[in-house]
Design a protein around this nucleic acid. Structure first.
Lengths: 335, 335
DNA sequence: CCGTTCCGATGAAACGTTTCAAGAGCTATC
DNA sequence: GATAGCTCTTGAAACGTTTCATCGGAACGG
């Protein structure tokens, strides 16, 4: 309980505390028998290093932080997995913080993290672009890498996925499949990702098919069902023969509502989602979807951070953009 | 970059460091104008408290850790959310560690956490019951609460969900719906949860219906499809009219395969899953499922830990068991 | 036998807080 | 005008490491 310190280890082993420290940090500089004695004392006393003291002396911690928007969102948990992969070799530790989409909690986490002198921060900020708090963090010398956020931010590295390209891929696929009337389901446009995906599909379709837009208040299954109901009620000659949704939840909702109404997917209407969540492949009709390299996003973000940490002043910020990939499944197979 | 210390704040404000510390920790004991001066200096210099020094002095940290089996599993992320809810009021911080089902990583995390002198640990250990490392942690005075693990462990608090009861609920529901031949799909039995759910359904069904067991190597959608194929190929008089799956992924697989084979759910075969993951309600045929109070599990675990922390020696370990709840949806509606 | 070199161990300083006994300066009381 | 009792501030010690200059002694060369 009363945690034993290096001092007691030293006494027990009959050496000075400097020697114990050497055993811990530079074992080769210590004579073999002394080392043995110290190690014996350590395990006899159940000594555990005190990281606070260590950090205090070192002036910095050995942790990097990932601040995610929402731990319950598979996108972010996959990113975290990628980060952990990249970091494990270095003797750094990853701490995961959840802002839960609350600016207040994000703030509290950043305060805490700065007090802990973390070596760096990977963050998808609640706001579309990093606010004053994050800028201050950077200014004071903590490297920050932005994940999937912050167009035209230049004070740090960024990793993003090309959402316009994702929209384009979906659009091109549907046009190539011969669809002349296509709907884009998604919203609100204030989410940059949604707007970009829209832009992308619009560009791909332009001049080749008619694009209808169905706005949704959010990106949920329920909103998808509502949008599908709207679409299903259009007259035959106006009803699109293909739907591209801004994410998979919407697409699942669309699928569900269409099935309930006897509209067959893909026979009567083709369907493409976005994100390729685990359940896309497992849906009643396996869902075509645009996949983002989530783990790689995390891995790369972590690599950039590690580079910035090791390069110090010499570091030049970089922006890495990933290309998404279209996964074609039954829901958009040529009927 | 060179983080400013309390000392420079003191100099800038023309007071002693003790006074600065007082402004930070007991503002009311400091004269108003002095306080103002100090606060001005703090913001002018961009001073950020050094948590390591603080902790070193205090002898303990202000963090509690949650070590989860798998961050990408929605079960655990919901538990984490519950923990965060419970902890926010206290000025403790939650750090999330992911053992990724690897004993090695779990070990590394526990070592790190102990060096950091965390106040307590919430953990679902990789092993079925806490191993030597966890016992040592407890012995040395770090409170540990086990989440959904560790039958008959007495060295700390535990929270669990009554899996046998979950199985029983599903079984009773299906029997009450008039099914005479029921299948249990799941495996491996070495997972305590699977075995308990099996026991529960067996008890509920005994004497009222015939229970067939279809073993699966894992708990995935693919395994569910395979199991469904086996079931679909039985002769009409032997084929069960209802299936209870050990988790929702299996159930989704079963649903998919049945649909593909033209077997209608629930008309030809009823289906009940376990976990009530988000996508259970969003499946092509909304899935009946046994729901576990995931967030509450986390909240309660955190509460127990906080109690143990505050009660100290006087603390008596407790075991809280939650009852799951059956959510009936279309997949098991009376045909 | 002396000077040099090398190996290993030592002791003290430093990191940035918090805490607490003690002191300084006032006011109120007698 | 001395005493006591305030309020506010101070200075020093302590927390447990790491680091680094220093030192003792052995080995070695001349």
């Amino acid at each position: 309980m009363a945690s034993t310190s290096i001092k007691e280890v030293a006494r027990q082993a009959g050496v000075s505390i400097g020697t114990v420290s050497n055993v811990l940090n530079r074992p080769h500089t210590v004579a073999a028998d002394t080392r043995e004695r110290v190690l014996a004392a350590i395990s006899a006393l159940g000594y555990v290093r005190n990281d606070s003291a260590r950090q205090l002396r070192a002036g910095r911690s050995r942790q990097i932080a990932v601040v995610v928007l929402d731990v319950t969102n598979p996108f972010f948990t996959d990113v975290v997995t990628g980060v952990e992969d990249a970091v494990t070799e270095n003797d750094l530790m990853v701490v995961v913080c959840n802002s839960g989409d609350s600016e207040d909690r994000q703030l509290r986490h950043l305060d805490q993290l700065e007090e802990q002198r973390v070596r760096g921060v990977l963050i998808t900020p609640v706001e579309a672009r990093p606010g004053e708090r994050i800028e201050r963090l950077v200014e004071r010398g903590t490297p920050v890498v932005l994940v999937d956020r912050g167009a035209d931010w230049t004070n740090g590295c960024r990793v993003t996925v090309d959402d316009a390209m994702g929209g384009r891929l979906a659009g091109e696929h549907l046009v190539a499949s011969g669809h002349a009337r296509i709907a884009f389901v998604g919203g609100p446009e204030s989410i940059p990702q949604v707007a970009e995906r829209h832009t992308g599909v619009a560009a791909a379709v332009r001049g080749k098919a008619k694009l209808t837009v169905v706005r949704t208040p959010h990106l949920t299954v329920t909103d998808g069902r509502r949008a599908a109901a709207q679409i299903a009620e259009l007259s035959d000659e106006r009803r699109p023969t293909a739907v591209f949704c801004a994410n998979d939840l919407l697409a699942l909702g669309v699928l569900q509502e269409m099935t309930a109404r006897g509209v067959r997917v893909p026979h009567d209407i083709a369907l493409v989602g976005y994100d390729d969540i685990t359940f896309a492949a497992a849906a009643a009709v396996p869902l075509s979807s645009v996949r983002q390299p989530r783990e790689q996003l995390g891995r790369t973000a972590a690599d950039l951070l590690l580079q910035e940490i090791s390069e110090g002043e010499a570091h030049v910020h970089r922006h890495v953009e990933f290309q998404p990939e279209l996964v074609v499944r039954e829901s958009s197979a040529r009927g």
